[in-house]
Amino acid sequence: MDDYFAELGELFERFNVVGAFWTNIQLTFWAALIALALGTVLALMRISPIASLRFAGTAYVNVIRNTPLTVIIIFMVLVVWTLFAVTLAPGFNDNFFRLAVIGLAIYHAAFVCEAIRSGVNTVPVGQAEAARAIGLPFLAAARLVILPQAFRGSIAPLGNTLIALLKNSTVAAAGSVSWETASTMRLMIEFRPDHLYLIFFIFALGYVVLVIPIGVVTTWLSDRLAVKR
């Protein structure tokens, strides 16, 4: 038993599991912020009076959500960094971390947009009519009446998107962020294949522990903040 724990200690000393999870949490946090902003703009575009903006928003969503995330992350490095020499930070590791954040945000913004649109659909038509009746133009109606209610109605799908984003942050492995969880787990398994079950269990448990609170909080928030009609 002591040997077993000694081996475990060695495994954890050699591989920074907590650091790996911290990387995924940070990737998720920054990507979520950017995706929320971009997704809101896209949702506004998709319900806006201007046909070309609607077209652009729809095109973005249809292209991005049908592309594998792996491809988007690979393109961030292959096209944006390699060919266009876009550098987001002086250090290599920071740079690829930020490129991965942008890639994750671009992908998940399409889903944020759809989540907000589904929230817009929960706003009764009378609200929009009332906003128009008091003379609000489109942007003011959207900002003051529609979006605040829409956000409340879209908390559940936004929470699902956040959970998906957290799990998808492992795909940053394809963008040279080699110190995140999926890569770390792979290295650990290659190093100690005899501890396969334990290693997988630790990582799986880590995600369960992170995902379940997000689910609980978003369900609670969505019940609490739902506009009672």
Binding site: V77, L83, F96
Partner: peptide, 14 residues
């Protein structure tokens, strides 16, 4: 500074 790519072709492109 280390860069890891999924394939050699991408390394050579870089």
């Amino acid at each position: 500074n280390l860069l890891e790519r999924p394939g050699y072709a991408e390394c050579v492109t870089a």
